[in-house]
Computed example of a mutant assay.
Amino acid sequence: MDKPVSYTIEEVSALLKVSKLTIYDLIKKGKITAFRVGRQMRIDHEDLVAYKAGSRTVKSYSEKAVPALNSHQTVISGQDIVLDLLSKHLEPKLRTPPLRLYMGSLNSLMSMYHGECNLVSVHLYDGETGQYNVPYVKRMLVSQPFALINLVCRNAGIYVRKGNPLQIKTWRDLAKPVVTIVNREKGSGARVLLDEQLRLHQISHENLKGYETEVTNHLSVASAVASGQADAGIGIENVAKMAEVDFIPMIQEQYDLVILKTNENNNLLHHVMNTLSSSDFKSQLSQLKGYDLHLTGQIIYET
C-alpha cells in the first residue's frame, strides 16, 4: 500500500523558513490545509505544494508568464531553499522586494538570456570536463559579461526507500529491470546530472523504467519514492530527511549564482557579495544539512 507523505508543523516551518506561529496562522486562515493525528497537526505534501504554487508571485518560464524587468525590480530564479534565504537577506537592501522564480537551471539561464532575470542559480554537470556550470554559462551567455559566484556546495545523489530494499548503490543500478525511477523535468540540474551519468556509463535511457515520469522539484521526487510510486530518483541530500527516504550520495555539486555585469546590476552584485560573506548568513546556512560552505562567496568565473 502506498504511504502518503505528510509533515509536522516543525518540518513545514523549517522548509518554508518561517516560524511555527506563521504556519498555525496560515492554517487558521485556511491558506494551508492541515489535519490532526492525536494531539499533533500534520500537513499533506500535496497541500504544501498547492500552497507554494498558489503563493508564487511569478509563474515558470515555460508558462510564458515572466514579466519584463524594470530598472527597480530584481527577479531571482532557482529552487533551493538557500536561495529563499538569500532573497530574504537581500530584501531590506533593495529598492523593491525581489521576486522569486522557481525554475530549473537551464530554463533560468534562458530566462536571463532573454532579460527576464537578474540573478539565477545553476547546478549543471558537464561530463566532458567534470566541471559544474562554467561550460554551460559560457555557451549560453557568450555575448554578455557575467560573474559566476558560489552559493553553496551540496551533496547530490539517489533517493531510495528506507533500508534500500533493492540495494541501489550506483548509477548502473538504476537500469535494473526491477527498479522504477521518477525523473526531473527537462532543463533541471538533476535531469542534466542523470543524463550525463547515463551517457558516461553508456546506459540508454530506454533501459530506465520510469524515465519519462517527470516531476518539478526535489521534494516531489523524494515523496514519490517515499510513497512507493518509484524506487529511486535523483535529488539533493537535505530533502531526504523531510520525505523520510534514504539518500545515496553520488557527487558534490557546485550550486552557483549567475549575475550579468551591467550598470543596472552593480548594486545587486555588491549586495550579493556582502551577503554571502556575512557571518549571519553563513551561520544560518550552516544549520542546514547537506551543504558545504568552503566556496561560498567565491567568484568561480567572470568575464
Rank of each mutant, 00 (worst) to 15 (best):
P98R: 03
R100N: 11
Y102F: 13
Y102T: 02
Y102Q: 04
Y102E: 02
M103Y: 10
G104E: 03
S105I: 00
S105Q: 01
S105A: 11
L106T: 12
L106M: 12
L106F: 11
N107A: 10
N107G: 11
S108E: 02
S108M: 03
S108R: 01
M110V: 10
M112P: 10
Y113N: 12
Y113M: 12
Y113A: 13
H114M: 12
G115S: 06
G115Q: 07
E116H: 13
E116T: 05
E116K: 14
E116L: 15
L119R: 00
V120F: 00
V120L: 01
V120T: 06
S121E: 13
V122R: 00
H123Y: 08
L124E: 12
Y125D: 07
Y125I: 05
D126K: 04
D126W: 05
D126F: 07
G127P: 07
G127A: 13
G127V: 06
E128R: 12
E128K: 14
Y132F: 15
N133L: 08
P135W: 06
P135Q: 05
Y136H: 15
M140G: 04
M140P: 05
M140D: 04
V142L: 11
Q144K: 14
F146I: 07
A147C: 10
A147R: 11
L148Q: 05
L148K: 03
I149L: 06
I149S: 03
I149T: 05
L151P: 00
V152S: 00
N155W: 15
N155C: 09
N155E: 15
A156Q: 14
A156H: 10
A156L: 12
G157E: 06
G157F: 04
I158H: 00
K162R: 12
G163A: 11
G163F: 09
Q167W: 09
I168W: 02
K169D: 14
W171R: 07
W171M: 14
W171Q: 09
R172S: 10
R172N: 10
D173K: 08
D173C: 10
